[in-house]
Design a protein around this nucleic acid. Structure first.
Length: 477
DNA sequence: ATGTTC
């Protein structure tokens, strides 16, 4: 397959064979060396060959192999001729990141850090299959799926000001629990307020560097300040919804006459009843995930208050933002000078709407939206801002993290005989993990350098660096 | 990612 470097950060795969559009990868030379794999790029080319795809199939610098679509992939589809694909969203629907900032500085919490981590691990249910404090009746679960974060606010979690600092206000329209299977609801009903496993975590960090003081101020970030980052999604509920619709679409897709290059790309025309049912069910999982992160932040705030023995006023925990990085959304974009409604799939990719976008809260009018990029557990996380360039080039999208370079299996092998916990503590990061294998699977060397990834999206102009966060403590699932 | 092979 032909790969043409067009500038320092952009690589094109020209339209050939069954491709309906060309493909583009955002990468530096070093990132290209790390991500260049025939099977991953084949996945991107497969996406470019799906019906009704608009513009380009795109991969962010954190691209790696995924189910059907690559992770780090962005693709937009025409509402009339295009498709929606559960594999283009991912198993963890609305996997995302929430960031809050405290009034405290590192020196004020260092003496209590061990106590904080122990308390967080005790009070925040984490690991596979765990259930939470919030047990929902079927009726209430349906309300959560319909209302998202606002449900959590109305039930005493967090503050209503938080929803303006959440993508979509923490609630996607069109969610309809009637499209969610009983099995999915059964899996989700006791999982609100749980962290999950794998790369999901809660991280205490410190604002290490501010690159853009004006945007940082609008986002509520200042140097030395302590931050809390939460990375999790829709748990078993979203997983089951993905599974249900992959099965349903796999059965039905061949009846449409579509020829798919990979069965994992199971999809249906956006106009079909099946596609619209998936969209409504996906929105339910997305809303559940926003309520989940909302409740988790509230629980963490309580842990901080109890452990440090201070009032909410002195803790002054405030939301920075909450982003979603596994989703498909109907959005309006300017394409070849024409405003069009398209269905944008972001799989391991983050929305990056620029200044003045009407969907953003007015507080972000001049800065563009905050973008939260978690790194691996030992390195750094970044806060970026959306740009006009992203609106023009990537349907308002950017990367979502460091991106794996090692498979989970390879990471476990490389970790044999090492104490990762001690290695992390030497770096000044206190880590506690619920699962035995998680530390190995998630070790820093299993990921690309997040700084390299962020430099690509900054250098290419599809995002702008605002601040760098240094982790000091992490709890993992 | 995931009641990690209903």
């Amino acid at each position: 397959m032909e790969l043409i470097q067009t500038d320092a950060y952009r690589w094109e795969i020209p339209k050939t064979g069954n491709m309906n559009v060309p493909a583009r990868i955002y990468a530096s030379d070093a990132i290209m060396e790390a991500v260049k794999k025939e099977e991953t790029f084949r996945q991107l080319v497969n996406v470019a060959s799906l019906p009704g795809i608009v513009g380009r199939a795109m991969a962010m610098p954190d691209i790696h192999w995924g189910y059907g679509f690559p992770i780090g992939g962005v693709a937009a589809f025409d509402m009339d001729s295009g498709v929606i694909s559960p594999g283009g969203v991912g198993y963890d629907i609305n996997c995302g990141v929430r960031l809050a900032a405290l009034r405290l500085e590192e020196k004020e919490i260092r003496p209590h850090l061990e106590d904080l981590v122990v308390a967080l691990q005790k009070d925040i249910p984490s690991g596979v299959g765990t259930t939470g404090m919030v047990k929902l009746s079927l009726k209430d679960l349906k309300k959560v799926m319909k209302q998202g974060s606002p449900w959590a606010v109305s039930h005493g979690f967090g503050r209503d000001t938080d929803t303006g600092r959440t993508e979509e206000g923490g609630c996607m329209d069109n969610a309809d629990p009637a499209d969610v299977s009983d099995r999915a609801m059964d899996r989700g009903k006791n999982q609100l307020g749980t962290l999950g496993s794998g790369n999901h975590f809660m991280e205490i960090g410190v604002v290490d560097t501010v690159y853009d003081p004006i945007a940082a101020r609008v986002f509520g970030l200042a140097e030395k300040q302590v931050t809390l980052m939460i990375h999790t999604g829709s748990r078993g509920l979203g997983h089951q919804i993905c599974d249900d619709f992959l099965g349903r679409m796999t059965k039905k897709a061949h009846k449409t006459g579509m020829v798919l290059p990979d069965r994992q790309l199971a999809c249906m025309p956006l106009r079909s009843a099946e596609a619209q049912a998936y969209y409504r069910a996906m929105a339910c999982a997305a809303n559940f995930a926003w309520a989940n992160r909302h409740i988790l932040l509230h629980m963490a705030e309580e842990v901080f208050m109890h452990t440090l023995g201070i009032s909410p006023r002195d803790l002054a925990m405030r939301m920075v933002y909450d982003v979603c990085h596994n989703i498909a959304k109907t959005e309006t974009h300017l394409i070849d000078g024409e405003k069009r409604r398209v269905c944008v799939h972001r799989k391991g990719a983050t929305r990056a709407f620029g200044p003045g976008h009407p969907d953003l809260d007015p507080i972000f009018r001049d800065t563009g939206q905050p973008i939260l990029i978690p790194g691996d557990m030992g390195t750094a996380s970044y806060v970026l801002a959306g740009t006009q360039k992203a609106m023009e080039e990537t349907f308002g999208s950017t990367c979502h993290g460091a991106g794996r370079v090692m498979s989970r299996k390879a990471a476990k092998k490389a970790a044999k005989g090492r104490s990762l916990q001690q290695e992390m503590e030497k770096k000044g990061v206190l880590v506690r993990a619920a699962g035995r294998g998680t530390m190995a699977e998630e070790m820093p060397e299993a990921y690309k350098d997040v700084t390299e990834v962020v430099n690509v999206v900054h250098g290419s102009g599809i995002s702008k660096k605002v601040a760098k966060l240094r982790p000091i403590a992490v709890i993992k699932g």
